[in-house]
Design a binder for these strands. Structure first.
Lengths: 334, 334
DNA sequence: GCAGCAGAAGTAAGCGCTTACCTGTATAAA
DNA sequence: TTTATACAGGTAAGCGCTTACTTCTGCTGC
């Protein structure tokens, strides 16, 4: 029913080796034969089987993308970029939303191995450097958005430190002194870097950021809101908060409104990521923009390099962030 | 380097057929042997090659999902659901953002065929019923969110008609009479159904919806905003608008604010989809909710049924929508 | 006029599995 | 004891490709 290389060969009166060669542009084939064969492939709507060719030890032209959640706009955007760049280069990409759960990660990894994907892009928290090394021993891996200290894996990250710093400087320039930070788990390097940059700018300005001012949240709107509600209730509430992603920022914004605080007159909010959410709230969010498209595309490029080349130059790409000033930040109006 | 079925067989002192049988739970194998073999697979970290088994004429355990854009929250949500259900059933899913461009659709389809995916879920506009039939001739297809009149393909849709009707009834109950509709291309059935439901409710109430009140937009915030700006400028502007998705609704909301109109006091907005965007705007949007998770999961179920069974019962699933009332709708305040 | 060679094509051995079919053995039926 | 029979397992033929190697022509160059 479906044409195979044999059908093409028979129809063209040549051997399957010849057909294979014209498909892959290898070996010496006369221009004449090449045309004939191509014409027949066209006529029979022949689609070479990636499956079969993969079995011969080559590539499957498939890569896996592990991320926490596809329905999170940040990751959706990155995923879109990975997909685009991948397809552009002839690769399919298999998406895996892990919810950051070890069990799911295990399952997906196993599935991807069975599918013999050519490599994996990890944008999700995976256990130890140890595990990662083991994984990388099995197949090429590129890590997005996180440094894995001792793993020496190719990585693409945003300039988290610089982003944190820029956020602080912006807020300082507006006269803010009492600030809070809403962070996801500080176990991941990107969060720590954002915090480090933020704190450094504050200290350089001669102020301090106490540990109490750091709130750890789940990566969800409602958790941001819940925790912000508590924080904003106090009389020594901050005049500005820096959120480590848009979801948290939305939560904080909602809490502020519920508490009757006007943004930015009484509370300034700086977010991180700059997904579509930042444009849609009211006021729209000042945010440290991550180059999501760039991140995704770079990860693919790195991965394919890894897949293709022997010399394994473990690259680490850091992409610049950019502070996008919108209306959620301003001077305090007494 | 990577263990194969031969390695397992050798190690266990059995034939590869036996190993294959224990892997797939077929044939008669003594409990004892089974355990032995399993233990060895465990020890050698054996991962059977889906590639190889696919070649034997079975499944690749991969399905393709074609959608317009992964970074659109609506589709991201559906994609997440498809992915979840798919993985749950042992399938990988390959995402393809088509931007609704024929050229991209073609490329993806060809890629998916070469990858020999077991089936395809189509959530994107594809040309004619003709093309679809041809595609379905090549492999199982399930269509999401659209009826394809003469194709007789398994389909999962939301109750668009009911959603449109509910939107109108809500607005009518609030006293609105001059209403506009912001729609994506009316060439797709779901848009037409929403419109039909909306119009029907209006007519049943004894009013009419003129063609001038129907604005066709691209599926983007800025296009919604641009067109809304023009519409809201007139003195005979509507008091309520019904948008066919959240992106358009956000655009309309932004335009309203720019025009100095307060929502809902001077303009009510009902959206469709109920993605995260609807919760995040200010005011949050009253919206006809689509059961995105349910849609995605059902599509997978339908597809796997299609893949597995001979008798081909072409199902058509219509899932209920639900009006979620938030603060973007209300009575006109003179 | 012939060795040497490059160009063009074919041969056949796998890649890692599944499966139809065959074999050998212990048990039940005759 | 002989024969049928279910069990447990093995044999080997592919699935649709790639590729190292071989073969056959027709030229070059001396």
């Amino acid at each position: 029913m479906k044409a195979t290389i044999y059908d093409i060969a028979r129809e063209a009166g040549v051997s399957i080796a010849t057909v294979s060669k014209v498909i892959n542009g290898k070996g010496k084939i006369s221009e004449e034969r090449r045309r004939e064969v191509m014409a027949i492939m066209e006529r029979l709507q022949y689609q070479p089987s990636v499956i079969a060719s993969a079995l011969t030890g080559k590539h499957t032209y498939t890569i896996g993308l592990l991320l926490p959640d596809l329905s999170n706009p940040f990751f959706a955007e990155v995923a879109r970029a990975v997909e685009d760049r991948g397809h552009q280069l002839g690769y399919s990409v298999v998406m895996c939303s892990t919810d950051n759960k070890d069990e799911r990660i295990e399952r997906y990894l196993s599935l991807l191995k069975q599918q013999r994907v050519d490599g994996i892009i990890l944008a999700t928290g995976i256990g130890s450097a140890e595990q990662l090394k083991k994984l990388n021993h099995a197949m090429p891996v590129v890590v997005i958005g996180r440094e894995v200290p001792e793993s020496n894996l190719p990585t693409v990250v945003a300039d988290d430190w610089g982003g944190g710093k820029a956020a602080a400087e912006h807020l300082l320039a507006l006269g803010h002194r009492r600030m809070a930070v809403f962070a996801e788990r500080l176990s991941i390097t990107s969060s720590r870097e954002r915090l480090r940059g933020f704190r450094q700018a504050i200290e350089e300005a001669g102020f301090t950021l106490t540990d109490e001012a750091i709130v750890i949240c789940d990566d969800r709107i409602d958790d941001g809101r819940r925790q912000a509600s508590a924080l904003l209730r106090g009389s020594d509430r901050p005049t500005a908060v820096f959120c480590f992603n848009d979801l948290l920022a939305v939560g904080v914004l909602q809490a502020a409104k519920e508490a009757g605080l006007s943004v930015p007159a009484q509370l300034s909010i700086v977010s991180f990521d700059n997904t579509i959410l930042a444009e849609v709230t009211d006021p729209p969010l000042t945010a440290v923009a991550q180059p999501m498209t760039h991140i995704g595309a770079s990860a693919v490029d790195l991965l394919l390099e890894e897949i293709g080349s022997k010399p394994k130059i473990k690259a680490r790409i850091a992409l610049p962030t950019e502070l996008v000033i919108r209306r959620s930040t301003g001077r305090i109006v007494e």
